[in-house]
Design a binder for these strands. Structure first.
Lengths: 337, 337
DNA sequence: CTGAAAGCGCTTACAG
DNA sequence: CTGAAAGCGCTTACAG
């Protein structure tokens, strides 16, 4: 690999003149010299060494994208994460930056990682709320969270109106004549996303004089664990006649569940109506197609990168957060009673 | 951020003693000194700067994972890519290396990227066959391809028996009494994966005295473009009575197509039988569940990382390639005639 | 417009 | 067991 020095020697100039050309400081170099150097750069296939540049400028062009998870897990099995990540990588690259992807969760690992590569910024997906403050405090670079809730004042987050999502689901069920309902999703202890959806759901029911029966709050730790899902399907089957509809916090869970329920002889929507969340492609692929609360994942991903780069490129840019809207998409998984 | 020097000053030793401790060369440092330095490292939260290390050792710990695609595209919308990538990232990280993800396709961009960060190795997904040789020739680090075919002698590739996949599909159709069949997939000009599946399919039909009618080779450029898919669905609808089954080269395409066909009044499997490819989760989520040619994506991803690291860590390790087996999973998308 | 020098944080022989 | 020195490839004031 040729270095600056090689180019300089070849051109008969100093390394710093070459450096100026490489970095586009054309005002400091005569046009002829510039042209000559550019020709040599092209001919010798010179590519600047970013490690060296990063070392002296104390900046890399690296953005660290961190997916919450265990080291031996595959968070991209979940299409929700995959779609977000794909858009994020693509946008980071368009800015001329480099995306380093990590799967981790502990605040120490994260801060270590950020320092190791002198990352200039970070985007964190799916962190638990109680981890946020610790992570923010150990780092001095811009960090944008996706889907996090925290009282930490300096938090930069892109999320959606989860509470409204819950309300919309409840309202739709009520309009369709449902009066006894269930809620299915991860335990809400760690993340307010689920808690907010749950509260919106309950509050809206309450408003219409239908208090939520907490016996029908079903928890599910993983949306990949088939065994756990099976147990849940069994429990639901046993309670078959006690509720007519269920709000499920993700399309992924809903579509998996639907299959298992069918195996137990429960048909959607005849025996049980379902509203899910996200509006991924799967909603239209399953039968019946899923009525769901829609959110715009591409927009979510794009905005988080936009916000990050605003902080990165504008000195003293304020800490921004954004809350995107949600809407209900009606399909065929809710029966009119 | 503290540096080696800071630690050295604090401990009253030279930077190189600290360097030895950081790098675990304990034989060169007395136990007491080691202990003292380790305490300081922990107390000051010292993290080595990899840019500096990379510069002097002329190696980074970076593995570049490259997904073929346009810069403004999201290849992770396709669950096939997402699952592979997730496993790859996770395994790279377990090795103590760092995964940098890029979406690109030109050989120059790729070689530039590899040099910029001094990547130690690379894994390339979905490259076209005619790009392989160019890419290999511009780089001197170990590269492992996934799903590529090329006559390039030094190619390291992890793939599956695509030809057999085609054969299995044909045989299954024949066993179920089908005699006139279609083939649906991307144009095979760029990638032998599709070509092989097609040939296996045709050859097996031929063997049973059923020549494939090339009018029923339908091409589809993208498995994300709904418009193109719609046009295809219409074409198929028009040819409704001319074939009884179709071999579709991915679950993704098959499940999307199934929906559109249903909208045109074509029911699977009654009006048309389908065999797809990959055996992703979606196969069990759609109705009817898809009969498909199964491949093991986690294994594919794991093996490619294994092969890469064998080349990376063992001097003079030979260039390895692997071909994984496929099998037919019978579900409900093929009707017995 | 051009260059000599110092330095970013680290490692690698080499000397003691 | 410990350290002084050189150097990885680059940029940044500074001087001319």
């Amino acid at each position: 690999m040729p270095t600056l020095k090689d180019i300089a020697t070849e051109a008969g100039v100093s390394v710093m003149t070459v450096s100026n050309v490489v970095n586009g400081n054309f005002s400091k170099v005569s046009p002829q010299t510039t042209a000559r150097i550019q020709e040599i750069i092209k001919r010798l296939n010179y590519v600047p060494n970013f490690s060296a540049r990063s070392l002296v400028k104390n900046n890399s062009h690296i953005i660290s994208v961190i997916l919450r998870g265990e080291k031996n897990q595959n968070p991209l099995k979940n299409p929700y994460n995959a779609i977000l990540l794909g858009t994020i990588i693509s946008k980071i690259q368009q800015q001329g930056y480099y995306a380093m992807i990590n799967i981790m969760k502990s605040a120490t690992d994260i801060s270590k990682n950020l320092h190791t590569w002198n990352a200039e910024g970070a985007i964190l997906l799916g962190m638990f709320d109680d981890e946020i403050e610790k992570i923010c405090s150990v780092s001095d670079i811009p960090i944008v969270f996706i889907d996090s809730y925290s009282n930490f004042r300096q938090l930069s987050n892109v999320g959606i109106d989860d509470y409204k999502g819950g309300q919309l689901a409840a309202r739709h069920f009520i309009e369709k004549g449902h009066r006894s309902l269930a809620f299915i999703g991860p335990p809400s202890s760690h993340t307010s996303v689920i808690q907010q959806r749950f509260e919106g759901f309950c509050d809206e029911l309450e408003t219409h004089g239908i208090p939520f029966d907490t016996r029908f709050r079903f928890s599910l730790k993983s949306d990949v664990d088939h065994q756990e899902m099976k147990v849940l399907a069994k429990t639901i089957t046993e309670h078959k006649n006690e509720f007519t509809g269920a709000f499920v916090t993700s399309d992924q869970t809903a579509s998996l569940l639907m299959n298992l329920l069918r195996q137990n002889g429960i048909l959607i929507p005849d025996d049980l109506s379902l509203i899910s969340f996200d509006n991924l492609e799967i909603c239209e692929q399953v039968t019946p197609q899923l009525t769901t609360i829609a959110q715009d994942l591409s927009q979510k991903a794009e905005l988080s990168v936009d916000i990050l780069f605003r902080r990165l490129l504008t000195p003293n840019a304020p800490v921004e957060s954004m809350v995107l809207d949600v809407s209900l998409i009606e399909r065929n998984s809710v029966k009119t009673l």
